[in-house]
């Protein structure tokens, strides 16, 4: 990636071909037209791949840091409830997705004590496979989604932060609080190009036993994917579609883009 960015930087006096090359690089984050050594990579390409894989491997093991600057400021605006799943370590989380879908008994108690039932929308933040993605996107995304919901007159529950979180946690939140729609913002597994990609999973009145077929997904929320402003507007549009249909899942298609 760094290689790409450097070449996108303004040249002192770019030739038309150089300008076109820079424009081509900006068209996709994919590592296109990197050249060849025989049928193999140039050494620089090979080592760039190794470096990015090393960074992604490290991102998987980074814990969610609620004291990071952007996250701490967010907590001041939206006082949240912090809970954990039954996956009590990163190693267990990676090998036991079933545990990452279940809240601890303590977490269920905490949520019951701190939250009233039946908001229109409940926002949930989960570390998933990349806390780096949560640190990067949630501070900007959460207020926009919250505002979009408030403007439409929906009641929005205080956010819930779930550590060692899998998507299936949606079902438990639905069971505990009975919101109309739950929106889960969760870190995607890191790729080589970025460890900052976030997904939003939406479910209408989720309940134990619901699966991905009952959910709607907006993925690739990051700087080079779907930027947060567009993501927020599409999430709110999806919430609206789910409420209008009274259901979620593959039967509900995302409305045509509200804005770009």
């Amino acid at each position: 990636m760094t290689e790409h960015l450097e070449l996108c930087a303004p040249f002192a006096d770019p030739t038309p071909a150089e300008r076109t090359a820079a424009w081509l690089r900006a068209a996709t984050p994919a590592r296109i037209f990197t050249g060849r050594a025989g049928s193999s990579y140039h050494t620089a390409t090979l080592l760039a791949l190794r470096g990015d894989h090393a960074a992604a491997r490290d991102a998987v093991s980074t814990p969610l840091d609620l004291d990071a600057p952007g996250m701490a400021a967010l907590a001041d605006r939206f006082p949240w409830t912090v809970v954990a799943t039954m996956a009590d370590s990163r190693h267990r989380y990676l090998r036991r997705p079933d545990l990452g879908r279940r809240l601890t008994p303590q977490a269920r108690q905490t949520i019951r004590a701190a939250h009233g039932p039946g908001p229109d929308v409940q926002l949930v933040i989960g570390d998933g496979l990349s806390s780096t993605a949560v640190h990067a996107q949630v501070p900007a995304l959460l207020p926009l989604v919250h505002e979009g919901c408030a403007v439409r007159g929906w009641s929005v529950g205080r956010p819930i932060v779930v550590r060692q979180c899998r998507v299936g946690v949606l079902n438990e939140i639905g069971d505990l609080l009975d919101p109309a729609v739950v929106v889960l913002l969760i870190g995607e597994r890191p790729g080589l190009a970025t460890a900052e990609s976030l997904s939003a999973y939406l479910a209408y009145r989720p309940r134990p036993g619901h699966t991905d077929a009952d959910r709607n997904l907006l993925s690739n929320i990051h700087r080079a994917g779907i930027p947060v402003r567009e993501a927020a507007s599409r999430i709110v549009g999806l919430v609206e579609a789910l409420m209008a249909d009274g259901r979620s899942g593959v039967a509900v298609k995302e409305p045509a883009a509200l804005e770009s």
């Binding site: 996709t28 984050p29 994919a30 590592r31 296109i32 990197t34 060849r36 025989g38 049928s39 193999s40 990579y41 390409t45 791949l49 990015d52 894989h53 995607e188 597994r189 890191p190 790729g191 080589l192 190009a193 970025t194 990609s197 690739n220 080079a224």
Partner: peptide, 25 residues
Amino acid sequence: AIPAGDDVMLNYQTTSYHDVVSARR
């Protein structure tokens, strides 16, 4: 077969254009 084996949408690594040609060779 994808550029440098790096899927920038699905966030995983697979075989690349280079890899396919190397295996064929």
